[in-house]
Design a protein around this nucleic acid. Structure first.
Lengths: 239, 239
DNA sequence: CGGCATCCGGGAAGATACTG
DNA sequence: CAGTATCTTCCCGGATGCCG
């Protein structure tokens, strides 16, 4: 007697919060599992289906396809067809989609203080580069104006760094003052893990082309926020 | 015959993203359905179980209980016992929990521009008051320094409004310059819905005690951001 | 092979009933 | 009032298969 309903899939009536609050509406738009991480991976430019799967190990193909469909339907993302001869299909954020970056930043900044955070897990190239945008210490970047390149396998990025921020795009860093080449994990170790750049270079895990002094300085520009102490986890004062 | 208890608590392995990115970790902490809305309702001070159920129509008792348990376990929330004679149990955020407010703000600000947003749905008192913190137009609040009170049934709030922001707590507004009393929906209509305050007062939906001129000005201090236009939903420029 | 559609098992969310 | 127990529904994740 397993006469399962013929999967009504009718109006694709998703679960709603029925709450006029903006936060609730946002969660209806991007609160599904993986949705915001898919958007994060598109924050530095369009990606293909298979690239997204590689960026997000753990997401299954059908969930990714469904998220891409949902996000496209709500206007946060769109399918693009690159011009021939490469004529492949990619997924890119719309302008509105890009405007969600403050959300990922707020989440990241907050969670970076979590005592449960495990920094040993893998990190995607986009995540690491976005963390630079989030964590740049303007004080330490005083007076800087440099072009920095990154090569993670096939993916190349170009960043323009000043004391006002760092703009990063997926394009060739031909004019870079310094270029980091190697694995994402290695650059992450240098910048967030406190591993000396010289050691990574010596072990061949990371290559630095160009201004070595600038590279050293670069690794110290993005300090992680302090962890939450037990005291701060205890009762909050009456406000 | 009910021998199905076997599964119990095996790994208690929640689904993980296995991603070192802060955004992903944040989603593991507060990405479950309803979790962030529960926290939002606690942002202005502790609440009881039944109050939360009333604030969040649609959440079921078991999901609320589970979220409260999860959030307590991760250190975002704690059970408090009010002193006798009222000795009842309430749930309050820890200091770290309060620090999630920028997240709800970023989400709210972003989603307020959504073309799919339905402002006719109900809104909780806390949501409305938090929207004031998020949306205050400092320019229009120039020179202000006022105490504003709110009475929504049993819940009373006191806000201190200056051009630098508005601080709100759940306490008696004895010294308020002006007090709004009535339904949350009515105050929302006045502030975000463009309904003239005078009309609401005339119809008895909202009472204003104290400085009426200040009340009028208050309703115009929190403009909603512009909606996304079709143009902005279209392809983003190459960045 | 990239980009899905489909089927299935497990588990989370939702609704309701029940208990101290 | 503050939850727990139980049942149903539906989403997530994995596997497989189709189709250009």
């Amino acid at each position: 007697m397993k006469l399962r309903k013929i999967t009504k899939r009718k109006g694709s009536e998703k679960r709603r919060y029925d709450d006029s609050c903006g936060t609730a509406h946002a969660l209806e738009l991007i609160g599904d599992r993986w949705a915001l991480l898919v958007m994060r991976e598109l924050m530095l430019g369009p990606r293909r289906f298979s690239q997204l799967r590689a960026d997000l190990p753990g997401i299954s193909a059908n969930v990714l396809a469904q998220r891409l469909g949902d996000l496209e339907r709500t206007g946060l993302l769109e399918r693009l067809k690159l011009p021939p001869p490469a004529s492949m299909q990619v997924y890119g954020l719309t302008r509105w989609g890009y405007e969600a970056e403050p959300i990922t930043q707020a989440l990241g900044r907050w969670a970076a203080r979590s005592p449960h955070h495990d920094p040993s897990l893998r990190i995607s190239g986009v995540s690491l580069l976005l963390s630079f945008r989030t964590l740049l210490d303007r004080e330490r970047a005083k007076g800087l104006d440099a072009v920095v390149g990154f090569r993670f396998g096939e993916d190349v990025y170009r960043g323009h760094l000043t004391e006002r921020g760092i703009e990063i795009a997926r394009e060739d860093p031909g004019d870079a003052d310094v270029v980091f080449a190697g694995s994402v994990a290695s650059l992450g170790a240098a910048v967030h893990g406190g591993v000396p750049l010289a050691a990574l270079v010596r072990e061949g895990r990371l290559a630095v082309e160009g201004d070595r002094k600038l590279a050293e300085r670069f690794t110290r520009l993005f300090p992680l926020p302090e962890k939450i102490s037990d005291r701060q986890r205890a009762r909050a004062e009456v406000r």
